[in-house]
């Protein structure tokens, strides 16, 4: 569970243009989804430039065919958040593989109408995560890798 107070978040987000709005949303989301935590890290843009940005990193719980899975995700917030949508990825562990599809590309980037049609204040992180949970519950973005590295059991003769 992430233990980050509002003062620490404000300090981390000092270059964010709408810092108070952003802090409020993050505080709200991490209180509801306790397996997500705010992390500052370098985000590399398509043109190769990089920038220190806040992400919410961790897992979101989905229910798929009656079982709960904790899907690893990273939601990057631009410094213009919430007036631009987050940039969202699934982050498969070494035991997982990405299942590309309508909502996921080979890099794990997440595409959703909710992100495409993002508009503050109707859109927010909490709503986004709820949409992800529904969409991923129908079409999981990652699956477990087959354990091909394990030695084959010898067959009984």
């Amino acid at each position: 569970m992430a233990v980050v107070n509002e003062g620490a978040l404000k300090k981390m987000l000092k270059q964010y243009k709408y810092r108070d709005l952003t802090v409020r949303e993050i505080t709200n989301v991490i209180s509801q989804y306790k397996d997500l935590k705010p992390v500052m890290d370098a985000y590399v843009f398509n043109d190769g430039s990089s920038r220190d940005l806040m992400s919410l990193t961790g897992t979101i719980p989905i229910s798929y065919r009656g079982n709960v899975y904790n899907i690893p995700v990273c939601l990057w917030l631009l410094d213009t958040y919430p007036f631009n949508p987050p940039i969202c990825f699934v982050k498969p562990t070494s035991a997982m593989m990405i299942k590309t599809g309508k909502h996921i590309d080979a890099n794990g980037k997440i595409y959703l109408p909710y992100l495409h049609e993002w508009k503050h204040p109707q859109s927010d992180l909490y709503g986004l995560i709820q949409v992800m949970i529904v969409v991923f519950g129908e079409e999981p973005p990652v699956f477990s890798r087959p354990t091909i590295a394990a030695p084959l059991p010898s067959l009984p003769s």
Partner: peptide, 14 residues
């Protein structure tokens, strides 16, 4: 301790 949930995924899609 600040581990969070262990990531998990459905069994391999076939």
């Amino acid at each position: 301790l600040n581990g969070g949930a262990v990531p998990s995924a459905p069994p391999t899609y076939t």
